[in-house]
Design a protein around this nucleic acid. Structure first.
Lengths: 340, 340
DNA sequence: TTGAAAGCGCTAACAA
DNA sequence: TTGTTAGCGCTTTCAA
């Protein structure tokens, strides 16, 4: 028990060769029952666990996939992760997760580390969609699936939610309620979700002939604080918007905190709709209308795509899933009061 | 680019021996500048990444720690994880995370997988505090730190929050507001947090001479649904409690949903206090009073303990951190209306 | 049904 | 400053 026992120790202990032990631990059959039992007993007594390192060196297969997310504190990702893990487990894959804190530098390190560890594939929401730093994976021929943010510099399977459609529907809903001064709290422009949700907003305005006003566009970084601050900016406008669209969950929370601090009355004074459902949505008064995404399904599909890629490495063309978000109308978008 | 290049390929490409290449990739010095550059160039051209598997086989050190949590969907764990990752990154460690979905069977598999991969240490919130299934780690001499739930069958470093104190303070607060009929939504009795939070509740009642009534104790499983159902049970009592204490974040959310569905008015009809702060706390009216835990600090301390154990393997006695939770008084505990 | 032996890609001790 | 070489613990032929 001093140091970890190896296959040699087991073989000696059971009085067989290491080849036979290997057969047993890999369930390859062709071993006499009695011998097998002897070996199993030895394994148990010694507390033997085979070294993945040595095994991987021969097999070039780890049955492990790596998941990289930009912000583990954003509840969206754990929920996606849960979907991935569930499916992965079914197929006998292990999942390891790392978070980059939105840093491409950290991300590159993680990628390298994952490659070193020989992951069979990677599911990633990248901190930098440019994706140059992911070329390594491609060079090593390791399958990648991009989730929520696409990768520009080369082709990979992608699972996205239709951001444009989602935010279009959200803003359209606002417009149909009579709103014309609609503020948007944007995510970073250099991310697909940030950009596309803004595009959907803009398109809705255009389609309904509502003039686009730059003052109503405030930049955020998908974090709670920025949602808070953006809301303040909107509030201080001479022409306050009559409605706000927030581009993600965390910024929605920040926005709600700001509304309260500013005593800017949700619903009656300012309508609201947000991208992503949040826990607080149904506890506010009025309840928050949102565009909801199917997190679990995103994770499941992502794994499925990766699994297919791992199994039939060649010849599958790039695939792109575009899931439809769901507009959940609650009560935070109210009819605009028109002066008679 | 066919298959992954190895150190041999690099050596050939640069016209040196593999030993020299090894020196360069490990920054060991003692290599002429020109040679080094030649090698670096070869590495770059070939897209070489060293195999962790081969390296680990020699070094017996992976600079990786494994984190095992019971439920990645519970926001508590990602927050702790963030604290761990931050500190780990500082010390040059990688962190891999897996979630057991509260299944000891899955947990055992993950543990085994982590050992196979040669993690240097493990931080775990176990699905089964009995801990027999973790003996493997001990046998392999792999350091463990238990977080939030202790491990019974052998000694490990532990980071806990003072659950008894936290729930005692919470219930005490309720009592001081004049409440005598206090319902509790419990977590599983076979978990430290579940049991201890109940104990704190009971102790507070005793200290203030309030009779303990079994009807006011409802079991939950730390999940949202159970919080919802438990609240309904409490509501259907002939003698409804005038206050509720919920043992964790998810059950608090379930409880709030139930309150709303039952039209059981928070604050005026039923006071409330919960263990763990939640996003919704400050958005409800009245705002929820809670016992908050320092998630980030928990993660940081856990890593620190593990790091020390990894570095000085011998001779450190078992350490147990007991962090103090913080009572956050907001408005959901109101003075009980006494009949004059 | 079993065993012997050749690597997998790397590190590190030793030699030059 | 550089090279040679012996393993690390396993899987997998090939032979018995």
């Amino acid at each position: 028990m001093e140091s970890k026992p190896n296959i040699q120790d087991v073989a000696r202990h059971a009085n067989v060769s290491i080849a036979t032990v290997s057969r047993v631990i890999n369930n390859q059959g062709g071993v006499r029952k009695a011998t097998e039992e002897k070996i199993l007993k030895a394994i148990d007594e010694l507390g033997y666990i085979r070294s993945a390192a040595a095994r991987i060196m021969k097999r070039k297969e780890t049955n492990t996939i790596g998941v990289i997310v930009p912000d583990i504190k954003n509840p969206f990702f754990p929920l996606v992760m849960a979907g991935i893990e569930e499916k992965a487990r079914e197929k006998g894959y292990f999942t390891i997760l790392s978070s980059t804190s939105e840093s491409p530098i950290v991300e590159e390190k993680i990628v390298k580390n994952f490659i070193e560890r020989g992951v069979d594939g990677v599911i990633i929401t990248t901190a930098n969609e440019n994706g140059e730093h992911l070329k390594l994976l491609q060079e090593q021929n390791i399958p990648i699936v991009a989730v929520d943010r696409s990768i520009k510099s080369f082709d990979v399977d992608t699972v996205l939610v239709d951001n444009v459609k989602g935010s279009y529907q959200a803003v359209q809903h606002l417009i149909l309620q009579g709103h014309k001064e609609i503020g948007i709290i944007c995510g970073p422009e250099n991310t697909t979700p940030g950009l596309e949700r803004f595009l959907g907003y803009k398109k809705a305005l255009e389609d309904y002939n509502i003039p686009f006003d730059e003052n109503y566009v405030v930049m955020g970084d998908f974090g709670e604080r920025s949602g808070y601050q953006a809301t303040k900016v909107l509030f201080e406008l001479d022409d306050k918007p009559t409605a706000i669209f927030s581009s993600n969950n965390l910024m929605t929370i920040g926005c709600m905190k700001a509304l309260e601090d500013l005593k800017w009355k949700l619903g009656s004074e300012v309508s609201f709709i947000g991208f992503d459902d949040v826990d607080i949505a149904t506890f506010l008064n009025p309840k928050l209308s949102v565009v909801a995404r199917p997190m679990n399904a995103i994770g499941e599909i992502a794994f499925q795509l990766l699994y297919e890629r791992i199994s039939f490495k060649e010849s599958i063309p790039k695939r792109e899933y575009l899931l439809a978000p769901e507009l959940k109308i609650r009560q935070s978008c109210q009819l605009v009061k028109t002066a008679f």
